[in-house]
């Protein structure tokens, strides 16, 4: 889904020089936690996210059934509290007799995995490209930024859809496509931050001290741009989950019988009027996960953003 509206991301935290001792690091962390804790929503989000993470990791231990095995004679069983439901299938079964709860539990793995991979790819590529653009400027910068403009000129979901059509439907290709459409935001952010930092005294000092270009870019400047990147990273995490589910829903993401939430919804569509549970639960799982991450994102922004702290 295309909720990649760039949010207002604050100026990066400026620290005095790069030679921050570990004591300063600890102080920073403590300060961060202090502000993060202020935001009740963020703490709840983090707690829910941790639970989902644990569920994903221990899926084989928690899930009552195999997510793929089809049980003949258990087609479309309703959830336990409805007439005809049983404790055997707490959230009911899908049209081919698979336990929905187990599929949701395993599905958490796919969604978190998608988020993680997409953010890793788009952050690492975006940061490197953005650093290069911001540091060197000139025609290279113009070229890179034009390229990013081009990617941003397409609606992200549409671009991802076409990309997946080219690469072939599947979860891996969906991740690549989503990473590609999300990555311009990181390029722009990094570039802006680098340009703001580049001429500051501490960078100049490091330059005069004879630091190499690589060192200047990655060791001196980059750590001072991390705050907005972390916030954008969180946002991208939830966007990636939504986009992957949307692609799955359109039939271009994970392929059946993978218990990916969006794909589950796509398979459930024909039962909209007959079995509400096969439609309701996968979407609820997506919503809860994304909401938890976004709550965390809001908290992170508040904690890392000095401007909002002030107000």
């Amino acid at each position: 889904m295309a909720v990649n509206t760039p949010k207002t991301v604050a100026e990066p935290v400026v620290l005095e020089g790069e030679h921050s001792a570990s004591a300063i690091r600890w102080a920073m962390l403590a300060e961060f936690w202090y502000y993060f804790r202020q935001n009740r929503g963020a703490v709840v989000g983090a707690a829910v996210f941790t639970i989902i993470l644990l569920v994903a990791i221990f899926a084989p231990l928690i899930a009552p059934h195999d997510p793929i095995t089809q049980v003949r004679g258990a087609f479309l069983k309703p959830p336990v509290w409805q007439a005809g439901g049983s404790w055997e299938y707490i959230l009911g079964t899908d049209p081919v007799g698979r336990d929905i709860l187990s599929r949701l539990i395993y599905g958490a793995r796919f969604s978190l995995f998608v988020g993680l991979v997409v953010v890793t790819i788009s952050v690492s590529v975006g940061v490197v490209v953005g650093l290069i653009a911001g540091y060197f400027r000139g025609p290279l910068d113009t070229f890179i930024m034009r390229l990013m403009d081009i990617i941003l000129a397409f609606p992200s979901l549409l671009l991802a859809l076409v990309l997946v059509a080219i690469l072939g439907p599947g979860l891996l290709n969906a991740m690549i496509a989503i990473a590609l459409v999300l990555q311009p935001h990181f390029v722009r952010l990094t570039r802006a931050a680098v340009m703001a930092e580049k001429n500051k005294d501490y960078v100049m000092a490091a330059k005069v001290a004879g630091a190499s270009r690589m060192r200047l870019m990655f060791r001196t400047i980059l750590p001072n741009c991390t705050a907005p990147l972390i916030v954008q990273g969180t946002l991208s995490f939830s966007n990636a989950i939504l986009d992957a589910a949307a692609l799955g829903f359109l039939g271009m993401g994970a392929q059946p019988p993978t218990p990916e939430w969006g794909t589950m919804l796509a398979e459930a569509r024909e039962f909209v009027m007959r079995a509400w549970w096969v439609v309701t639960f996968p979407g609820l799982a997506i919503l809860i996960t994304v909401l938890a991450i976004n709550l965390m994102g809001d908290g992170l922004r508040d904690a890392l953003d000095p401007k909002l702290k002030r107000s």
Binding site: R269, V272, T280, G283, I286, N294
Partner: peptide, 22 residues
Amino acid sequence: ALVGYSMPIFWWGLLLIIFFSG
């Protein structure tokens, strides 16, 4: 607003169909 912002709208649409049309 945050719930709306986190909404998988394809699912939201199906829910509305179930409720208002179904």
